[in-house]
Amino acid sequence: MTPLDEICHPPFHEADAAARARILSRLADTELFAALTGEPTGNQVELQSFDLPEGKFALACDREERLAGFIGGPVAHLALPGRVLAAELAREGQGLLVNPGHVSQLLLDAGMLRWLVEALAARPSQTGTEAARSLSAPRPEAVMLLAEPVAQRLGDMAGLVERAGLVLAEWPDGCSNHALILRGVDPAHEGAVAKAFAELLAFLPQVPGGIDIGFSTRDLPASALILEVPALTAPAEPAPRDPNAPPRLR
């Protein structure tokens, strides 16, 4: 099972709009292996295209062996992030077939890829909470919508963010909205981290009043939703090999 497989329950084409958006968000952050017509010539490559009833589609998988298995043998390929491949295909008016035959199979036409590219262009609405009149517990509907996807994004950003707090902020003018406060972020990385969370929010249904992203050091209320980043675990040391054992062939 790959991370893309794990999020495709139910499968993309049976999921509701919110679940499909989360799957597309994961696809954008996934390294894909796209089939080529032949070995690269200099820095020029040509993607394999397949004519389907829905149009022309390029082929990519999230594992090299999946790509070879579908083609029926080794194939020249290009590894690149899903967001980069989607942008290139959207410009060319092509669609994308991902992981055919697997639970994470996606058939995305050019229109869907253009929507994905537009969502990835989201810019963060940043704020601090120092000027807020009060901070309180987030609304239950916001917690239900945000807890799982924010926790997943935090897991992707271990080492960059320590924790996130979701609160409802009330401002001096009487307006209120939710704020996602990120802690433990190097100031040099704040722009990129805020952009990553803005992209995540762009794929989710709208929360009334919107959601700001901030890096405030203000104490958060006990009623805030606090999400911790999972601790990084060092890979296990391999067991020492018996020097008298026969060689292992690959």
Score class of each variant (00 low, 15 high):
residue 2 T to E: 08
residue 11 P to R: 12
residue 14 E to D: 12
residue 20 R to L: 09
residue 20 R to K: 09
residue 23 I to C: 12
residue 25 S to L: 08
residue 25 S to K: 12
residue 27 L to P: 05
residue 27 L to S: 01
residue 27 L to E: 10
residue 34 A to W: 03
residue 35 A to T: 09
residue 35 A to G: 06
residue 37 T to L: 14
residue 38 G to A: 13
residue 39 E to R: 15
residue 40 P to S: 03
residue 45 V to K: 02
residue 47 L to P: 00
residue 50 F to I: 11
residue 52 L to I: 09
residue 55 G to F: 05
residue 59 L to E: 03
residue 61 C to L: 00
residue 62 D to W: 00
residue 66 R to E: 13
residue 77 H to P: 04
residue 81 P to S: 10
residue 81 P to K: 06
residue 81 P to G: 02
residue 90 A to Q: 12
residue 93 G to R: 08
residue 94 Q to N: 04
residue 98 V to L: 12
residue 100 P to E: 01
residue 101 G to L: 04
residue 101 G to P: 06
residue 103 V to W: 03
residue 106 L to F: 10
residue 109 D to Y: 10
residue 109 D to W: 10
residue 109 D to Q: 09
residue 112 M to H: 11
residue 113 L to V: 01
residue 113 L to G: 04
residue 114 R to C: 03
residue 119 A to L: 15
residue 123 R to W: 08
residue 127 T to R: 07
residue 128 G to R: 14
residue 128 G to S: 15
residue 129 T to Q: 03
residue 129 T to V: 15
residue 130 E to W: 03
residue 141 E to N: 08
residue 142 A to L: 02
residue 143 V to M: 11
residue 143 V to I: 14
residue 148 E to W: 10
residue 148 E to K: 14
residue 148 E to R: 15
residue 151 A to H: 11
residue 153 R to G: 08
residue 153 R to A: 14
residue 157 M to E: 06
residue 162 E to N: 03
residue 164 A to C: 09
residue 165 G to Q: 09
residue 167 V to Q: 07
residue 168 L to I: 09
residue 168 L to K: 11
residue 170 E to F: 01
residue 170 E to N: 08
residue 172 P to R: 05
residue 173 D to N: 01
residue 176 S to L: 07
residue 180 L to V: 02
residue 183 R to Q: 12
residue 184 G to S: 08
residue 187 P to Y: 01
residue 188 A to G: 10
residue 189 H to N: 14
residue 191 G to Q: 15
residue 194 A to I: 04
residue 194 A to E: 11
residue 195 K to L: 08
residue 197 F to W: 07
residue 197 F to E: 00
residue 203 F to A: 08
residue 204 L to R: 03
residue 213 I to H: 12
residue 213 I to N: 11
residue 214 G to L: 00
residue 215 F to R: 07
residue 216 S to T: 13
residue 218 R to W: 00
residue 227 L to I: 12
residue 230 P to R: 05
residue 231 A to H: 03
residue 232 L to R: 13
residue 235 P to N: 06
residue 236 A to T: 14
residue 244 N to M: 13
residue 250 R to D: 14
